Simulated scan of single mutants.
Amino acid sequence: MPVWLVVGLGNPGPTYASHRHNVGFMVADELARRAGTGFTAPRGMRGDICETRITSLGMGAVGADAQRVVLLKPRTYMNDSGAAVAKACAYYGVKPAEVIAVHDELDLDFGRLRLKRGGGDNGHNGLKSIRSSLGTGDFLRVRFGIGRPPGRQAPSDFVLSPFPASLREELALEVDRSADAVETLINSGLEAAQNSFNS
Rank of each mutant, 00 (worst) to 15 (best):
G44K: 10
F144I: 03
H19C: 08
A64M: 14
S129I: 00
V7A: 10
T184W: 08
A84Y: 05
I49V: 10
S18T: 14
F110A: 09
A165F: 09
G123C: 04
D176E: 15
G36M: 03
V70K: 03
D80R: 13
A172S: 11
R168C: 02
A32L: 10
V182F: 11
L72H: 08
D48R: 13
K73Q: 09
L185M: 05
R68I: 07
M59K: 02
R53S: 14
Q67K: 13
I130T: 06
S156P: 00
G118L: 01
L108Y: 14
S178I: 01
T76V: 02
A165W: 00
S156W: 02
K116G: 07
P150A: 15
E51K: 01
E183Y: 06
P149E: 06
L134V: 03
E98L: 04
R148L: 13
E98K: 12
G145F: 08
P155S: 10
T15Q: 15
S81I: 03
R152Y: 02
A32H: 06
S133T: 08
R68Y: 05
D107I: 04
G38K: 09
T37W: 06
A61K: 15
N22M: 02
P155H: 01
N79R: 09
K116I: 02
G145K: 03
D176K: 15
E183M: 11
D121Q: 13
A192H: 11
I186A: 07
P162V: 00
D48Y: 13
S161R: 09
D121V: 13
V142A: 10
V99T: 05
R68V: 13
P14I: 04
D157V: 06
G8R: 02
N22Y: 08
I186E: 10
L185A: 08
Q153S: 05
A28S: 14
C50G: 07
F163R: 06
T76D: 03
L71F: 05
R112H: 13
S133R: 08
K128S: 15
V159K: 09
T136Y: 04
A97N: 07
P12G: 11
K95M: 14
T37G: 12
N187S: 12
G120C: 07
F144L: 03
A64T: 13
L127R: 11
V23A: 12
V85K: 05
L160M: 12
V94T: 04
P74E: 07
G151T: 00
I146L: 08
A86I: 02
A90S: 14
S166R: 07
A32P: 11
M1S: 14
S56F: 13
G58L: 10
A193L: 12
D157R: 03
G123Q: 06
C50V: 02
V6S: 08
T37D: 01
D80V: 13
L72A: 13
P150H: 15
A165Q: 15
F25N: 09
G10Q: 05
G137Y: 00
H19S: 10
R53P: 00
M1P: 11
A181K: 04
L171I: 03
R20I: 05
N79S: 14
K87I: 00
V7P: 10
A64S: 12
G60Y: 08
A61N: 11
L171W: 08
L173P: 00
G135V: 01
A101P: 07
S56A: 15
D65S: 11
